[in-house]
Design a protein around this nucleic acid. Structure first.
Length: 275
DNA sequence: GCGATCCTGGCC
DNA sequence: GGCCAGGATCGC
């Protein structure tokens, strides 16, 4: 479900968590398949305040004043919601509840359980297997064109759609913003990296940045499941050029949107614009 | 590099 | 009942 703009919006909406003292962590018996042992997570977080929230690609980090951080991936259906006061009974599929000293709570909910809950004890996350394989953030200003192109060139056989979805090359794009970025760069998602010029890869980086920043500006795309940490919707859906518009004109009216399947996922694109 | 696979829920 | 869904890993 959530891509970089959605996770960033959630992060910003949960600024209220900073300084809140965690007194208890309640895990469900059906936590996501990839969950670090609850007792390890408890040991790292319980009885200490939250220092701040960080983001790496689509991962959200809840950093404890103790130094370590809970590393959350929301998968397809994950949701984080702050409650003050919390309800007596939480919604179905709530797998973790952080309870704070003042009675408020943060709930992690994930029906499909594709998400992950893990830990890092280091500042840079290099001790965490998920963060370890992550490439630089697309919106990290320290990521240069040259570096991005070099990282792309390691995968000459990938088509451009698969390239954009690969979090090891650069991180943060998911299916929505991958389609949007390729449209913005006027690049055909079926084209191979080896058939692409350096200037085209550079324009893909720039297009990805603009697509993601626009998503952040509009609070993310609420298509079905996504809400920020306070339960608010994002309006980016109204600004999407091609995603979920099969058979309709692109938002800017430059052509008609087609849907194809790549890597077993829908790609929305406009053949008249993208070559 | 590609397809199958992990899950549940909503919609036709 | 079948198909689809903001994801990513794993085995061939």
């Amino acid at each position: 479900m959530p891509e970089l703009p959605e996770v960033e919006t959630i992060r910003r909406s949960l600024k209220t968590l900073e300084g809140r003292h965690i007194v208890r962590l309640d895990f469900s018996s059906l936590a996501p398949v990839e969950t670090t042992q609850p007792r390890h997570i408890r040991r790292a977080l319980a009885d200490h305040p939250i220092l701040r929230l960080e983001r790496r690609g689509k991962y959200l980090l809840i950093r404890s004043a103790q130094g370590g951080a809970l590393v959350i991936h929301l998968g397809m259906s994950g949701r984080l919601t702050f409650f003050d006061p919390p309800p007596k009974k939480f919604e179905n599929h709530t797998h973790l509840i952080l309870r704070f000293e003042d009675g408020s709570a943060l709930a992690y909910q994930d029906a499909r359980r594709f998400g992950t809950l893990s830990l890092t004890e280091s500042a840079d996350g290099t001790d965490n297997p998920f963060l370890q394989r992550l490439g630089p953030d697309y919106i990290d200003p320290l990521l240069t064109e040259e570096q991005f192109i070099a990282r792309c060139r390691r995968h000459p056989g990938l088509n451009l759609k698969a390239l954009t979805l690969n979090q090891g090359i650069a991180s943060g794009l998911g299916n929505i913003y991958a389609c949007e970025a390729l449209y913005r760069a006027s690049l055909d998602p079926r084209r191979k990296v080896r058939r692409s010029k350096n200037s085209e890869l550079a324009s893909l980086l720039e297009a990805a940045r603009q697509s993601l920043e626009l998503g952040i500006k509009h609070g993310g795309s609420s298509l079905r499941d996504y809400f920020d940490g306070l339960g608010n919707r994002g309006v980016m859906k109204d600004f999407l050029q091609v995603y979920d518009r099969e058979g309709q004109p692109t938002l800017d009216g430059r052509g008609t949107v087609k849907r194809i399947v790549q890597q077993a996922r829908s790609t929305f694109f406009c053949p008249e614009v993208q070559r």
